[in-house]
């Protein structure tokens, strides 16, 4: 028996909105530790890694490890039926081929449930080694989304370069070039507005705008985003989900041929 209750169903809806651009379907691995998902986009350039801890749920029970393959478009349809303030309870029997989502309104005056068919998906998991990153940038997630959106107008790639002076985002294309430089700023009153850089050595890497733009769909999940970079290693873009876990995106760099 699997049962997970989340008072803020909107958090799960935000997670779905953040990954549906990249993934059509995905397997949710449920265990006593929580719910995990790891899946690559169809071109194997980026990877989504979701970790929702069991103790972040308002109720969590998983008697037997369970992998639930879901079509994310269908899952999106189910969550479209929920109210913004609803509580969601996910339930599945052991070896079940369906999962049930029950939505309860805040006042408990409306309860709806939707049963969705599960899928058998070929799971491809990648082993991601622990990496000593050359630089770790933490910045407001809204600012990151804005910069990626703005620079995407100039070219298909964005160069992210980080030095002790700050971080620079650059793009160039037919119409010209764009550069955005951010210096470190410590705002002790509003931590979420700070830009912080933990630098071991300067690094500059090039990434496809299309994927960076998709990652920023996770902006509503977190005030801050963490970018971890290292030469010859994919970029890690991490959004902390308060009290529940994190959503990470991995993106292979572009390299000179």
């Amino acid at each position: 028996m699997f049962e997970a209750r989340l008072v803020n169903s909107s958090t799960f809806r935000k997670v779905l909105d953040a990954i549906k651009d990249l993934l059509n379907e995905a397997s949710f691995d449920c265990s006593e530790n929580g719910i995990q998902l790891q899946a690559m986009d169809s071109s194997h350039v980026s990877l989504v890694s979701l970790n929702l801890k069991s103790d972040g749920f308002d109720k969590f029970r998983c008697d037997r490890n369970l992998t639930m393959g879901m079509n994310l478009t269908s899952l999106g349809k189910v969550f479209k039926c929920s109210g913004a303030d609803d509580t969601v309870t996910m339930k599945a029997q052991d070896y079940a081929d369906t999962v049930t989502f029950m939505f309860e309104s805040k006042k408990q005056d409306k309860i709806s449930d939707y049963e969705m068919k599960l899928m058998n998906l070929d799971q491809e998991h990648l082993g991601i080694p622990d990496t000593e990153f050359s630089c770790i940038i933490k910045m407001p997630s809204i600012e990151f989304a804005r910069i990626i959106r703005d620079l995407s107008q100039f070219g298909e790639s964005i160069v992210i370069s980080c030095t002790k002076e700050g971080v620079k985002f650059s793009a160039q294309g037919d119409i010209g070039t764009g550069n955005v430089k951010l210096a470190q700023t410590h705002n002790f009153d509003k931590e979420e507005e700070s830009v912080t850089i933990d630098l071991q050595e300067p690094v500059a890497l090039t990434f496809a705008c299309q994927y960076l733009n998709s990652f920023t769909k996770a902006t509503p999940l977190s005030n801050q985003v963490k970018l971890s970079m290292c030469e010859n290693v994919p970029l890690v873009v991490e959004y902390q989900i308060p009290e529940l876990g994190h959503l990470r995106f991995y993106l292979a760099p572009k390299i000179e041929e």
Binding site: S43, L126, G127, T206, A208, P234, A252, I255
Partner: peptide, 14 residues
Amino acid sequence: ENYQARLEQYYTRL
């Protein structure tokens, strides 16, 4: 021209 790397170039399949 930039060549797009794939994740398998960096990570192993489990």
